[in-house]
Design a protein around this nucleic acid. Structure first.
Length: 573
RNA sequence: CGGGGCGUAGCGCAGCCUGGUAGCGCACGUGCUUUGGGAGCACGAGGCCGUGGGUUCGAAUCCCACCGCCCCGACCA
């Protein structure tokens, strides 16, 4: 591909809106252009990378028996009504009407369609197990996109679906995907770690997320160096050592003007935060008012809370009027005197004696509040976030918290969808059973961005061989005044094309500086420089982008590389 | 949805406060020179100043409304 013909442009200045390295570099190097918030065009170079990532995924999913297919982006709303998700999912599911006023949706995933196809096509246990997958555009109307390709509204995802006879079969399909994902991310040059994660709205039985550590990540991971404990903070258990025992003291009002936060309260009373109780107020999607109590030195974990409450439609923060209406006061809140509220208390609060809690009166708290002496919780269980340095629930050594980007997920769905759609098979036992499903996603664009995050320097991108848009970047220097240079470069370019291994060829009439700078920005694994100097030195200057290692290779050797994709000697590789 | 910021040429920005009809760098076109690390000179093209309304003799500039984009939070995979 001649750079003089390539549809792209490199930018000398960083685009103002880009914060992350991947976003900045992909824009600057001409891989991407933004069309709207969370909506991007892939330029030819970007499309090439995306295709290569796709191909890696395709090979590995094929290798575990996946069958590629393609399911539609636009679905009749009935499909989503039948599974119930039409009503459970909020505004991120895009709904619209077609010309005959029929309700339609843009698909966020394809469990429904798979379940319907299974219902139509599978009758006998002999037809299972099976894995199907496709690469398809998803549109999710995110409340907020961010970080370039990290969180977008429109994106292509590989989603595969396993269809098994029973839980044991699902376990096997799940294991296969787990192993395939490890191979995929290794090939993509990503150090992904699998963490256990929440099963969320689909109510499955187990799930893992594959995470790449990154400070811009949106998830917090709880990791243990001493053992293999690795959980998303959303579900991570927390080691909470017992507090010092104390005799229970009587409640006592204390004036605390302006102490509306735990921080202020602890400072004002000159006590540690661990001697306070923190109240958080929520309303569930099904209309219940919830008071959650954790100790002042912890934060409420909303995922655990949602799961404990089995709250359909999740949680939203309560409004001030709603809190007052139930006899409580924001900033000075506690369950003392609360009405019409579900009271959920963290287990550590129950074990911690004589805490300072809100008096539900502006400017006042209460000392020595004890559960269940002073108020009766509806539930007592772990609803706290794990903190940096907390004891690992598994082995007790201190855990660490890290930010991560989710590059893939695997999910044991179970039979929710197949039951909803009546996707049954006739078993060997002569009975009808629901097909057991799993669902497994990998977002292409997000992976491309993560690859750049992991493989770049201050000069630009440094693609791993496996995903580079082209294996090499051929730069000619002085082709205008040295016919031999031009001829050699042209011949190498033609040869590569003929060998089915096209390379980038900078045939532009640009100064050497521009060409080298662009080559480093664009990030092909090898740069091949042909110049009067290189020819005089015996051939072509070969530079490895990643290491900067540089040497002169003979023309023969370079031709061998272009034909086979590898350098004969180990010297350059 | 709450908080903050920003919309002026393909990209990065100035001009706005104090109203007088748009400018800089890069990129782009032509010519000459240059040619191993973002070249030089000359000439040139390119802008409903986000949109609509208002104030004014006159609005990029002041006022109002809307739209869009970015960041933090909420939310989410």
């Amino acid at each position: 591909m001649r750079l003089s013909e390539l549809f792209f442009a490199t930018l000398r200045d960083d685009p103002g809106e880009a914060e992350m390295a991947s976003h900045r570099l992909l824009l600057r190097a001409g891989y991407l252009r933004q069309l709207g918030s969370g909506i991007y065009s892939l330029l030819p170079l970007g499309k090439k990378v995306s295709d290569r990532v796709e191909q890696v995924i395709r090979e590995e999913i094929d290798a575990i028996g996946g069958q590629e297919m393609e399911m539609p982006v636009v679905h009749p709303a009935e499909v989503w009504k039948e599974s119930g998700r039409y009503f459970k999912i909020g505004p991120e599911l895009v709904r619209f009407k077609d010309r005959s006023e029929r309700d339609m949706v843009l698909a966020m995933t394809h469990e429904e369609v798979v379940a319907m196809l299974l219902r139509d096509l599978v009758q006998s246990y002999r037809q299972l197990p099976m894995i199907v997958y496709h690469f398809q555009t998803k549109f999710r109307d995110e409340p907020r996109s961010r970080g370039g390709l990290i969180r977008v509204r429109e994106f292509v995802m590989k989603d595969s679906y396993s269809c098994d006879l029973d839980d044991a079969g699902l376990d096997e399909s799940y294991r296969k995907h787990y192993a395939a994902y490890e191979k995929i991310f290794r090939r993509l040059g990503l150090e992904a770690i699998a963490v256990r994660s929440d099963v969320g709205i689909m109510g499955g039985t187990a799930a893992h997320e594959f995470m790449v550590l990154n400070d811009f990540g949106e998830d917090t991971l709880v990791l243990c160096d001493n053992c293999d404990f690795a959980d998303n903070q959303q579900i991570a258990g927390v080691g909470k050592p017992d507090p010092e025992p104390e005799g229970l003291l009587s409640m006592e009002d204390v004036e605390t003007p302006g102490a509306t936060t735990i921080e202020a309260l602890a400072t004002f009373l000159n006590i540690p935060k661990s001697k306070t109780a923190k109240a958080a107020f929520f309303v569930t999607g099904d209309g219940r008012f919830v008071v959650a109590i954790v100790r002042g030195d912890y934060d409420v974990n909303e995922t655990k809370l949602v799961n404990a409450l089995k709250a359909r439609g999740g949680l939203r923060p309560a409004q001030l009027e709603e809190i007052k209406g139930r006899g409580m006061e924001a900033g000075y809140g506690s369950p003392l005197g609360a009405r019409d509220a579900v009271i959920v208390v963290d287990d550590l609060v129950e074990r911690s004696p004589n805490l300072v809690a809100g008096a539900n009166r502006v400017g006042w708290h209460v000392r020595n509040v004890n559960v269940p002496r002073d108020y009766q919780p509806d539930m007592i269980l772990d609803i706290a976030n794990a903190r940096e340095g907390d004891p690992c629930p598994n082995c007790g050594s201190p855990v660490k918290l890290r930010k991560g980007i989710e590059v893939g997920n695997i999910f044991k769905l179970g039979t929710d969808f197949t039951n909803a759609f009546g996707s049954m098979y006739l078993g060997e036992d002569g009975e009808r059973h629901p097909i057991v499903m799993g669902s497994y996603g990998i977002g292409l664009g997000r992976n491309v961005a993560c690859i750049v995050e992991a493989h770049h320097d201050e000069k630009g991108i440094a693609w791993p061989d496996e995903v580079a848009p082209y294996p090499a970047h051929l730069v000619s220097i002085g082709a205008g005044r040295d016919e031999k240079v031009r001829e050699t470069a042209e011949r190498l370019h033609d040869l590569a094309k003929a060998a089915g291994r096209e390379i980038l060829y900078d045939d532009r009439d640009e100064s050497p500086g521009v060409k080298f700078t662009d080559a480093e920005l664009l990030g092909m694994p090898w740069t091949l420089t042909v110049s009067p100097r290189s020819l005089a030195a015996g051939g072509v200057e070969v530079t490895r982008r990643e290491s900067g290692e540089r040497r002169t290779a003979s023309i023969d050797e370079v031709e061998g590389f272009l034909r086979t994709g590898r350098f004969a000697g180990a010297a350059a590789a």
